[in-house]
Amino acid sequence: MEKSKLFEKISGSLIEMEEDKVVELCKKSLELNIPVYETITSGLIAGMDEVGRLYEEEEYFLPEVLICSDAMKAGLDVVKPYLKADDMGKPIKVVIGVVEGDTHDIGKNLVGIMMETSGIEVYDLGRDVPLDKFVKKAEEVEADIIGMSTLMTTTMDGMRTVIEKLEAENIRNKYKVLIGGGPISQKFADMIGADLYTKDANSAVREIKKIVWG
């Protein structure tokens, strides 16, 4: 089978939520000695890009995106052990979490999934995350981005606190700060000095790549 045909089948099966087929086709790519990074970028990530588009256009919703991302991860598990270390370049690293006081994490999880499936390295701190932990983890893993989410207006101000902490420690310039969630707006992002606000998961991924890679 031609390489391009195989990639097309991988992304097609991924979009159709057929996890078993994705796994089978990824195994095939290994048998055919196709470079792993090509399978990942032209097959799996290309498929998830299309899933992201369908989500933005309201053809796919949360359940569909979750299942596609599972298929993506299953495919990745097959090929990743054969990936040469520097094939994929240096990944963007993001620390994300739901700020302290809030446990609503569906949105944050979706953002995390869309990031991971587009090749971003995600450090998910979970929900109800103490504000110090964002800074600590970002320093520890040398992240590029700190992403914070909340669904509640009462906990929004925690995002400002994190930015102030970065400033106090003189490391504000090391990170881009991404915020999102129900009550968050561009206006709020401007007010607290966050670098990026997006209204949905897919545009978050797109914008992150823009600001990190320029």
């Binding site: 939520m17 359940p63 979750l66 299942i67 569906i106 999880n109």
Partner: peptide, 11 residues
């Protein structure tokens, strides 16, 4: 877990 439940709508 909500994510598990949402996936079950299909699976």
């Amino acid at each position: 877990d909500p994510l598990q439940s949402f996936k079950m709508l299909h699976k």
